[in-house]
Amino acid sequence: MIEILSTSALATVQDLGRLGSLRYGVGTSGAMDPLALRAGNLMLGNDENAAAVEIPVFPFQIRFTADCAFALSGADCAARLDAQTLLPWSVHQARAGQTLHLAPPQSIDAPALLRTSRAYLTLAGGIDVPDLLESRSTQLRGQFGGHEGRALRKGDCLRAGEPGIGKRAVGFGIVPPAVDMPLQVEGMNAVRVLPAAQYESFTEDSQATFWSEPWKITAQSDRYGYRLAGTTLIPKVPMEILSHGIVPGVIQVPHSGQPIIQMRDAQPSGGYPKFGTVIEADMWRLGQAPIGSQIRFIKVGWDEAVAALAQTQDWLHELRRLIELQQWSHGRA
C-alpha cells in the first residue's frame, strides 16, 4: 500500500511494544512516543496497539500504491500530500499514486519547548506485519518483528490492514498532548522521576544536582538509550550489582558518572547503579525530546506517579470521546 521513497534509515514499524517476553531476554521495543501512536490509531478507528511507522530522520517520503486512509501524529513535519499542506495530528484519505512528504520538524512559530523529533504515520487497519511474541514492533537486536526485523529502506512496501476508501470521517485534527499537558521547568522540557535502588548511594551533592540542573541529550542518543551530559554524579562508594531486569525509563549511572536513560530498544537486564526511573506517564515526552536539547528532572513519589498516569488516561479518554463525536456528526451529514 505504501512504498518507502527515502533512503534515510532508522524508520521502523512499532506498536506499543512487546511487553511479555522479558524473561526470554527480549526487550520491549515499541513506539518512543506511545501517546502519538495511540492518537494516530484512534483517529483512524484502529486498535490503539496497531502498528505504525516511526520516523526519526527527515525529510521522509512515501508513495501510496493504493487508496488508503492515514493519520499523522508526533512531530510537526510540515507534511504535504502531493501539493496539499496537511496539519500535524490529523487524519486524511490518500489516493493511489499520491506522495506524502515530511520535512524536518519545525520550530518556527512554535515555542522552542514544543520542538519534537519523531513523527508517526498510521494506516487504516494498522501496518500489516506478522505478530511475533504478541507484538508487531521491530526487535532490532533480535532481528525479528516489524518489517523483516530491521529498519525500513528505500523500495520497501508495507501493507495496510484496511486499505481503500473508508466510511469514517477524515480531514480533521486534534490538539497534541504537549499543548494539553505541558510540563516544563525554567523553560526546559521536564520529566518526572521516581528514585531507584541506588539513589541513596550517591553523594548528597549529586542527589541535589540531579534535580536542580539541566541535562543535555547528547548526540550518542537513540532508541536504545539517551546518554546525558551534565555535572558528574558520584557514588559514596563504588558499587558492584548483580544483573537484574530493567525497563525503559531506568536511569543508569555508569563509571563515567554521566547518566544514561534506557529507552524502548534497551536490553531487558543490566547491572549499572540505578539513580531513578522516568515514570511511564512521561516516556512520551522523553521520546519526543530532540538530540541537543536540555531536560530537567522532577522528583516524585508513588502517589504522584500514579496520578500522572491517570491524567494521561483521562486525556486519551477525552480524545476517544471527541473522535466519537466527529464520527457521529459525519454519519449524520
Partner: peptide, 19 residues
C-alpha cells in the same frame, strides 16, 4: 530482602546474600 521501584513499570526484589 530488598524491594525497590523501577518507576511505575516494575519493582525489583533482591534476595539477601551472594549468588
Amino acid at each position: 530482602p530488598r524491594i525497590s521501584l523501577l518507576g511505575t513499570t516494575a519493582l525489583l526484589f533482591e534476595a539477601p546474600g551472594g549468588l
